[in-house]
Design a protein around this nucleic acid. Sequence first.
DNA 1: CATGGTAGGTTACTGATGGTAAGCAATCCA
DNA 2: TGGATTGCTTACCATCAGTAACCTACCATG
Lengths: 211, 211
Amino acid sequence: MLVANYRTGRVPRAVRSAQLLELADQLFAERGFHAASMDELARRAGVSKPVIYDHFGSKEQLFATCVRRTGEALADRVAKAVREESDPRERLRAGSIAYFRFLQDQLRAWIVLFDGEDARDTRFATEASRIRRRQSDLMIHLMAETSGTTPDHEGRPRLEAMTLAIAGAYESLSLWWHEHPEVPPEELADWLLDLIWPGLEQLNAQLATSS
Amino acid sequence: MLVANYRTGRVPRAVRSAQLLELADQLFAERGFHAASMDELARRAGVSKPVIYDHFGSKEQLFATCVRRTGEALADRVAKAVREESDPRERLRAGSIAYFRFLQDQLRAWIVLFDGEDARDTRFATEASRIRRRQSDLMIHLMAETSGTTPDHEGRPRLEAMTLAIAGAYESLSLWWHEHPEVPPEELADWLLDLIWPGLEQLNAQLATSS
DNA sequence: CATGGTAGGTTACTGATGGTAAGCAATCCA
DNA sequence: TGGATTGCTTACCATCAGTAACCTACCATG
């Protein structure tokens, strides 16, 4: 979509970069990291392999770039949805729904990351944990924004650990969802909210007053 | 440990299998899936490559076998710990502590699975989700055992989804722990318990009475 | 308008590594 | 003692990430 006409011969660097990223996204989604070959990407782009290496350095860096972009898009959508609500619980709910809706759209790309044939490769985990971290940071930030307090030095690791754990729960629930697509995003969000909200509220209170 | 003397020449099939599995476990833990080569495994076992392929079929199947064994050992330890308590909350706590203690012992093998250079490979995710599923099943089983009730047909998917989500939270928390090893397993367990117990209790009540 | 530098690109290769075909030899059993 | 079975080896192939060396369209400048 971004680049209408492939195989246009000589093209400015930025354009070629964008085109390669777009095609790489597709290819990784279709085949997974392991089975996607640089030769095929080169063929699809109508370009020779060294061009790709000149732009991205290695297959892993190319993959990392693709994943990071997706992760950022996800974080943006969640953050935006959260900011449209004011009540704490409603904020979390809105963020959750945005999260699951995003996955619904990007399903194929997502599955490549966390499930399927390639997930055994350590290279995946690095990027996955980066996304998780991003969600966790976002959550901490928004919690602070909402409650107006921040945990003291002692409470901080605990908060960090718990938000990461929650991000992991979302991630894992997404995989379950992949096998039960009939459940609507809102219901998923409500299930998870009912599960973690009581504990989360208590945690927030506990960490805020311990300072 | 299992097989004292390697390079013994001709050896019965079952013995060779056990030896190869043991060495493969070590090798994967050292290098990760991607960087571990079948040639090296063959060299270490003092055997030629086709022997390995005769026993396990492919690198991926060999890896899957290793991971599955670890997953089973983990589930066994958790189940055993849980069964030594009777109060529901104490059961969950005991299981959690057992879970984290196991990871502490098997840290290297664990990290290979969920972090590090190879986790980008889809092949990993399959096995990881198998472990998660196992923990989830265990949890459902133990919850039923404890409360004496099982959810109706409608409530079942929700319960399944929530236990998987919780398993994901444990998994993700383990990765955080890897960077904060100073936190004792008991504290991790308590943090997580405080977070999910209220919601879990409520969920259990809700699903039991809806039948 | 010639001209030289640079950005964009190509051909042709290497080195690892997963995987296999074909065959050989130790051991067991009749 | 001899033949079948089981355990194992040699020698190879195909694929794929990554690279060295080289080429050429295009642009700014004297």
